[in-house]
């Protein structure tokens, strides 16, 4: 391959891609500087965002205020509970589907796999009626339980358990370990990478879930942060405080971006794995 043109080609790529990345960041930066402005100043002209004075007042208001911290707490509880639940259920089911013999096992697994193709839209009305019937809306249970039925985790864990050689189980059986001890001491620790992937994936899904919490949590104190942000956007035109609104956006987005930066590898793997199913 001709070295010179290849080098020039590379530089063109670097410039184009870097510029595109810059464009990607523009909206984020815009929101960031808006959030650092006094709302009153923005009312007259948002172009003032490009010049000082800047203030952290909006953030102070958020942290001081009841509303957003309640939502944040709700989001945290719901996301953690759903993550823990999915990990537990998927691990158990994954072990069952990969290691235990029972009649109809393979057929059941195929049915669960078919569940992957059911979109949320097809079940959300039924779910809503279900929770209405038992008067369970506006509860953590209602926010968490539907998410636990997602087949992806079971699929992922079953695949992962299947990839562990049977020899390992057999060695443990010869070592006199009980079935539960093999699951708990030998196989489960071996699935930690998959647990991490699935856990982070589920956490993100739960945190960013929009439609279900939107229709199930109607009580203002039960909103998740994602839905809460939407509820304040409705009053957007009045601009009750653009700066405040933007600070909320940053506040809601920053934790996800932070987790993303820390767990980038796992997240990317989780997403690629989830899509490639």
């Amino acid at each position: 391959m001709p070295a010179i043109s290849s080098r020039r080609f590379f530089y063109v790529q670097v410039v184009v891609v870097t510029l595109a990345a810059g464009l990607m960041l523009v909206p984020l930066l815009w929101v960031l500087i808006l959030s650092l402005k006094d709302s009153a100043a923005l009312m007259s002209d948002t172009a003032s965002a490009f010049s000082p004075p800047y203030t952290l007042e909006n953030y102070a208001n958020i942290i001081g205020g009841q509303q957003v911290s309640t939502w944040l707490l709700n989001s945290t509880i719901v996301s953690l509970a759903m993550t823990a639940g999915v990990l537990l259920l998927s691990s158990l089911a994954g072990y069952g589907f990969s290691r235990l013999e029972f009649p109809g096992r393979d057929a059941l697994f195929v049915i669960v796999l078919l569940g992957l193709a059911i979109p949320e839209q097809a079940v959300i009305i039924g779910r809503h009626q279900l929770f209405s019937a038992i008067s369970m809306h506006n509860s953590y249970t209602a926010l968490v339980v539907p998410g636990l039925s997602m087949p992806f985790g079971v699929f992922l864990m079953t695949q992962y358990f299947r990839a562990i050689p049977l020899e390992i189980d057999e060695a443990a059986r010869l070592d006199g370990a009980s079935r539960f001890r093999i699951f708990w001491r030998i196989l489960l620790p071996l699935t930690i990478p998959a647990q991490a992937t699935l856990g982070i994936f589920t956490f993100f899904q739960a945190w960013n879930d929009y439609w279900w919490p939107l229709v199930s949590a109607t009580n203002h104190d039960m909103l998740t942060l994602t839905v809460g942000i939407a509820s304040t956007q409705v009053n957007f035109a009045q601009a009750e405080g653009l700066g405040f609104l933007m600070a909320q956006a940053v506040f809601a987005g920053a934790p996800m971006l932070l987790i993303y930066v820390i767990f980038q590898k796992y997240i990317v793997r989780a997403v690629a794995g989830a899509a490639g199913k």
Partner: peptide, 14 residues
């Protein structure tokens, strides 16, 4: 297996 007082070395070591 655990009660048979046998030990096994596996093909892939396990």
């Amino acid at each position: 297996p655990g009660k048979r007082d046998v030990a096994m070395v596996f093909q892939h070591y396990a």
